[in-house]
């Protein structure tokens, strides 16, 4: 359940953050902040959670904008990037968003576990 909330919160905060902040804030720091709030014993799950949240957000937004545009621009940009189809370009966008958010969430989780262990040892 934790992971699902974490996922939802990343998507929503990421979506909101875009209106005020540079592009990378949309993912890495948002996922980091959300990752700090929730706790997991393993880093892999937060990574996965961040990854899916970031990927859905970026892919979803790209898909939405490109569909309204009938893939006109995505077709041209795809050719610029070496003959990638509009769908391919949306997937690349999603993977990139996922990777950045996943790493953000994982870093947050590792940080929190580091602090927690340090606190225990005291």
């Amino acid at each position: 359940m934790n992971l699902f909330f974490q996922f939802l919160l990343t998507v929503i905060l990421g979506f909101v953050a875009q209106y005020f902040l540079p592009w990378w804030w949309v993912m890495a720091p948002v996922a980091f902040i959300v990752g700090l709030i929730f706790y997991s014993d393993q880093s892999f799950y937060p990574f996965l959670m961040g990854f899916f949240a970031g990927a859905i957000l970026w892919w979803g937004m790209a898909y939405y904008l490109s569909t309204l545009n009938h893939d006109l621009l995505a077709g041209k940009m795809g050719r610029l990037f070496g003959d990638i189809s509009p769908l391919g370009l949306e997937i690349v966008t999603g993977l990139l968003g996922g990777l950045i958010a996943g790493l953000g969430a994982m870093t947050a989780n590792l940080g929190r576990r580091m602090l927690k262990k340090a606190a225990k040892e005291v």
């Binding site: 970026w58 790209a62 490109s66 545009n69 006109l72 621009l73 995505a74 968003g97």
Partner: peptide, 10 residues
């Protein structure tokens, strides 16, 4: 980034 990048020009 679909929030700032080229997708916004579609």
């Amino acid at each position: 980034s679909p929030f700032t990048g080229f997708w916004q020009n579609a």
